[in-house]
């Protein structure tokens, strides 16, 4: 993890401090070519503002949509993205890699 990841946690904490709902997405595992390594993080708040990344921009939209539900009270979720997954075609993981992303709310 480098400083840009630290900014993600700091920003998530700052948003919480302002009373906003926040979710954090983390890359758990990758297979094949994947733009961001395991441990990469994205934080998103209830207004849709985000900091950090879990891919090169391919799956962030889908992750943010899931994050909104989780912030609204759903359980943490493990998301699969890959070329064998229909959702990946939808969101377009062009690199052909596969990855798992864990999304949780800050309670």
């Amino acid at each position: 993890m480098d400083a840009s990841e630290q900014d993600v946690l700091q920003q998530a904490l700052a948003w919480r401090g302002e009373g906003r709902k926040v979710a954090i997405a983390t890359v758990i595992a990758t297979w094949g070519s994947s733009p961001r390594p395991v441990g990469s993080q994205l934080a998103v708040n209830e207004d849709g503002a985000m900091v950090g990344s879990v891919s090169g921009g391919c799956i962030e939209g889908a992750v943010v949509r899931e994050a909104q539900e989780i912030m609204a009270g759903a359980r943490p979720r493990l998301l699969d993205f890959g070329v064998t997954n229909e959702q990946a075609w939808e969101v377009g993981l062009a690199c052909g890699g596969k990855l798992e992303v864990y999304v949780e709310a800050v309670e």
């Binding site: 630290q6 946690l9 700091q10 904490l13 919480r16 954090i24 493990l78 864990y102 949780e104 800050v106």
Partner: peptide, 25 residues
């Protein structure tokens, strides 16, 4: 993630204290 854990992680990082968050998926 509990907000208190997030706060601890940010504080650890600022204090240059290595920490690891373990999550049961």
């Amino acid at each position: 993630m509990k907000a208190a854990l997030l706060g601890q992680l940010v504080a650890d990082r600022a204090a240059r204290r290595p920490a690891a968050l373990v999550t049961d998926l």
